[in-house]
Structure formats: structure tokens, C-alpha cells
Write a protein that binds this DNA or RNA. Structure first.
Length: 492
RNA sequence: GGGCCCGUAGCUCAGUCGGUAGAGCAGGCGGCUCUUAACCGCAAGGUCAGGGGUUCGAAUCCCCUCGGGCCCGCCA
């Protein structure tokens, strides 16, 4: 690996430390308190005052070092905050002070022990009586003020993004805690978390292109799942009644601001309930998550706004009514497929002529309605044509019991009253097979077999976890909520 | 798949009409005991993404390649 002159300089410092018998990469730093705690202890001090009592130990990454002759100010970052260390020649000793002043580089991980104090200018600080190098950084961190601006570098080397951006750390921490909150919510509602297979013989539950690979053991081609649906419904047949899974799904398609080939899906299935029950569950889940995000990210306007929006509750619109209203096209359901296709074309879609009519309706909806679904919105009751896994509507012929929900023009999830009639399921799969010239859709025979044993009436939902985090943290691109998004391998 | 844009020092960015490479931060040396994007002085740091072409002369113009971004299309 190439070494820059800066790195050479830092490596020389490591060598010097070692030659003096000091370890630049020690094993631990016990008894360390979060910087937050020191800041809290400073709250009762007045400017220039030092706290009484036992010294405190803190550790973190050196972010800036301001040297003023016999005093130096060092800012360190840890997970949740940052803290100024005050290094003084008269506290550390002249010789030690001089050594630290020249040995420390930004990016170094250091530990300090000392007393909390407010600086004369009122900055919460720790007056360091002892310092320890915990890990020497050979490569310098990104520029301290602007941070890492290069989008490519941020994605390829996420550690640099995280170590230089408190905002990025806060976003990914929020993601983790929101997922934890989701689990807590579903656990409390009596759902059982399960893990089903990522490697499957048939990638069902959608029509997206799967990734394929090969099992040496089986000597067969296997696929990465594109959805969780068919596995979880089998568990309903098996009597697990309320199940959910949060896990990676894979679709061999393009990456854009709302799609990633590898993404995290939450699906939940609830026996003896229908899509109206699921609507209530979604409303309660999002109210809770948005409130949580708002407290996690108090300085983020988008998080505060999301909390207000979801607390106010969802509006409910009807798919066909809303589409007719927004597009100005009347009697949509009486239109011929050719008419619908022409409307879709006029809306800028290039769908093939032989697409099923439901596809045209979806395109029209995407174009005319989706951008307007800014506040939390349930879109209810879809025409049956594009939804082979949902149950027919109890009172509207030609419709299925399905809703999607939206926020800020982005689809966040999709729910049905689940189809559990094995014969009708078989027919719907057949229709889907016939509707497509290319055999992208392989139907899952064993799933129909499972339904023959009886699946309880149930509702189910799929929620894109990445999009959920985007919505609640006000993040515009899915790549910014995925730690290591898929990027092309660099060829030298 | 189509269109537009970007790639210059470790990082953040300038670079005019084609005239031979600039700043800030970081790093080095020196100064400074309350700064917080600290400050002041000195010195150093370049495969201008890569390759080819036009030209007396290319970071700059043209072509190709690589990587990335945005928009459109496709992906229920």
C-alpha cells in the first residue's frame, strides 16, 4: 500500500514510541465514562471553575488540537458527543506536555484522566492530569471542517464518513434504535420473530429478478429471496399465528434513491385478522417510531416534522377515486386495456403493449397520485389484476383487500387481507404466468400445496425498513441509510 | 438502456480566452497559558482519474476507457 508523506511522518512517531518502550496500540482503557457524563458534570460549574472529587476517565478520537504555548485544547469525539480536553504544561509537567503536543495527531484515539472543568470561556472540558495513546492513526482523517464531501468515498469507505460526521453517526444509530423499537412493538403485540431462508429454490412473493447462485451440496441452482411472504405464510399454516421477520431481501435490479439491490424488509402476518386491523397496527407503529425518532434526533427538523405528521394520524383515500380525481380520467374501470395503455403512455410510461391492464393503472397512479401523497396516507382497495396474493374484496367485485401507505410521496409499505383459498391462488398464479411472455415468474408449487392444508384467514404486511428510516430521519437517498451499499469494484 | 454533470495536493476547493499549478485545512519547523474552523511567521507537498489525439504549447479543446452523481426509463 502506498504511503503518503503525512503517513510516513505518523509512522515515524509510532517507531519512536516503540523505541522508548511505550505501546502505541494498548489493550484497553478501563473505567471510561462517556463524554456526555463529563459535560453533565460541568453544568453546575462556573466559568474557569474545576470540579472537586475523584478524576474521571474519558476516551475518544482526537478531532482538533489547538496549541497556545503552555496550554493546548484537544477536542475528542465519542459515540454520542464530543468534549474538550485542556492540556496544561503546569499540570502535565513541562516535558510531558511538550511531548504530547508534538506526538498527537488528529485522528488518534486517546484516553484522558482528569477533572471536569468549565474553561474561562465557558466550554465544558476535562483538565487532563494523565493522557494515554490508545491507537495511533497512521492515515489522517478527512478535513475537519467540511468533512468527507466525496459521495463515492463516503459510500465505499463508510468508516471515514462515520468518523468524520456526527450527523452520519446519529443517523445510523437512529436506524438501529428504530429497528429495535419496531421489534419491541411487535413483540408486545404478541408477534413471534422468526428467521427464514435467504437461499431458496423459488424466489416468490413478487416478480423482481432474483440473484442466483449454486449449492455445491445440492448440485442445484438456488436463488436469494426477493420477499419473505411465502415463507411466513407457510408458518401461519403451521400454526404460528402471529409471525414477523426483519431481514435482507435481494432484487437483481438497479440502484436509485429509493431502491437498493440489497435491502431490509419487515413482513408481519397476523392470523384471524384482516387488512383493517393491519391498518390500525401500522398507525400505532408509526406514531411510536416517529416519536422515538424525534427524541433521538432533536436537532433534525425532518424528524420533528415526521413526529407531528404521524401523531396527527393517517388520511385514507380510495385507489380508484383518488386516481380519477388527480388524473381527471373518469370511469377508469370501464376503459379498455388499450385506452389505459394510451393514458399510461401519455403520463410518460414506456410499458410494453401486452402488459396486463393493472400495470397501466399502477403507472398512472405513480405519475398522477404518488407525488401528492405527502402526509401519511393509506391508499385502499386495488383492482385485482396486479395483486395475485391478496384476497378478493368482500363487497367490491374486481377488487382486492389491499392497502399501501405513503409519506412524502414515497411508498412505505403494502398490506393485504391474505388470499388463503388454494384453488384461487393456483388460478391467480396461472394468470400471472400467462400474462408474461418472458418466464420471469416461476410459481411456487409447494406454497399452493401448503394452502391446501388450510391457512387461517389472515392479514399481512411488508414494510421497507430502509425507507422507514429515510422517512423518519428525513434522508433523501436510500444509500445514506445503508451502511455499505452495493458499489462497483474498483479496477486499478 | 437514454440524457446531463463531475473526477486538480491526504481532505475541502479555485484555476478566466489553450501559455507551463493556486488557496484553506491537515502535516513539518518556529512563536504564543482560554482557544473552539484559534492565531502569526517560514518551508514543503501534484501521474490535474487513465489512455490517445489536435497544437509551438493542453488541467483547459476532441475521442475512448474507468469511477461516481443527478434525471428519465425498467424493477408490483
Amino acid at each position: 500500500m502506498e504511503e503518503t508523506p503525512l503517513e510516513h511522518e505518523r509512522r515515524a512517531k509510532v517507531a519512536r514510541w516503540r523505541s522508548e518502550g511505550r505501546e502505541p496500540y494498548p489493550w484497553s482503557f478501563p473505567g471510561r465514562a462517556p463524554t456526555e457524563e463529563v459535560r453533565a458534570r460541568c453544568a453546575t460549574l462556573s466559568a474557569g471553575q474545576e470540579a472537586e472529587g475523584a478524576p474521571v476517565r474519558v476516551a475518544g478520537r482526537l478531532h482538533a488540537l489547538r496549541v497556545h504555548g503552555g496550554t493546548a485544547f484537544a477536542d475528542i469525539d465519542d459515540l454520542a458527543g464530543s468534549l474538550q480536553l485542556i492540556l496544561r504544561a503546569d499540570v502535565l509537567g513541562e516535558e510531558a506536555y511538550r511531548a504530547w503536543r508534538s506526538d498527537l495527531d488528529s485522528g488518534d484515539l486517546i484516553g484522558a484522566e482528569g477533572r471536569p472543568a468549565l474553561s474561562r470561556r465557558g466550554e465544558p472540558s476535562l483538565v487532563a492530569g494523565r493522557l494515554e495513546l490508545l491507537a495511533k492513526a497512521i492515515s489522517p482523517p478527512p478535513e475537519k471542517f467540511h468533512g468527507l464531501q466525496d459521495v463515492e468515498e463516503r459510500l465505499r469507505r463508510r468508516y471515514l464518513d462515520l468518523l468524520s460526521s456526527a450527523e452520519s453517526r446519529a443517523r445510523f444509530r437512529a436506524r438501529s434504535l428504530l429497528v429495535r423499537e419496531t421489534r419491541r412493538f411487535l413483540d408486545e403485540a404478541g408477534f413471534l420473530e422468526v428467521e427464514t431462508s435467504v437461499l431458496v429454490p423459488v424466489a416468490g412473493g413478487g416478480t423482481a429478478q432474483p440473484f442466483t447462485t449454486r449449492s455445491n451440496y445440492l448440485g442445484e441452482e438456488v436463488r436469494l429471496r426477493i420477499a419473505l411472504e411465502l415463507a411466513l405464510k407457510r408458518l401461519l399454516v403451521g400454526g404460528l399465528e402471529r409471525v414477523y421477520e426483519i431481514g435482507k431481501c435481494f432484487r437483481n435490479e438497479d440502484l436509485d434513491v429509493t431502491h437498493s439491490p440489497e435491502f431490509t424488509m419487515l413482513e408481519a402476518y397476523w392470523a384471524y385478522a384482516d387488512y383493517q386491523d393491519m391498518k390500525g397496527l401500522v398507525e400505532r407503529l408509526y406514531a411510536r417510531l416517529a416519536a422515538r425518532a424525534a427524541t433521538l434526533l432533536p436537532e433534525l427538523p425532518a424528524a420533528q416534522e415526521a413526529a407531528r405528521s404521524f401523531e396527527a394520524g393517517f388520511q385514507t383515500v380510495d385507489f380508484v377515486d383518488e386516481l380519477e380525481r388527480r388524473s381527471g380520467i373518469s370511469r377508469l374501470l370501464e376503459r379498455t386495456p388499450a385506452e389505459l395503455r394510451d393514458y399510461a403512455r401519455a403520463a410518460g410510461s414506456t410499458v410494453p403493449d401486452d402488459s396486463p391492464p393493472g400495470v397501466f393503472l399502477d403507472k398512472l397512479f405513480e405519475h398522477h397520485v404518488e407525488p401528492h401523497l405527502v402526509r401519511p396516507t393509506f391508499v385502499m382497495d386495488y383492482p385485482a389484476v396486479t395483486t395475485p396474493l391478496a384476497k378478493r374484496h368482500r363487497s367490491r367485485p374486481g377488487f382486492v383487500e389491499r392497502f399501501e401507505f405513503y409519506y412524502r410521496g414515497m411508498e412505505l409499505g403494502n398490506a393485504y387481507t391474505e388470499l388463503n383459498d388454494p384453488d384461487e391462488q393456483f388460478r391467480r398464479f396461472e394468470e400471472q404466468l400467462n400474462a408474461r411472455a418472458e418466464d420471469r415468474f416461476v410459481y411456487d408449487e409447494d406454497f399452493v400445496q401448503a394452502l391446501r392444508y388450510g391457512m387461517p384467514p389472515a392479514t399481512g404486511i411488508g414494510i421497507g425498513v430502509d425507507r422507514m428510516v429515510m422517512a423518519l430521519t428525513g434522508t433523501a437517498s436510500i444509500k445514506e441509510v445503508i451502511l455499505f451499499p452495493l458499489v462497483r469494484t474498483r479496477t486499478p
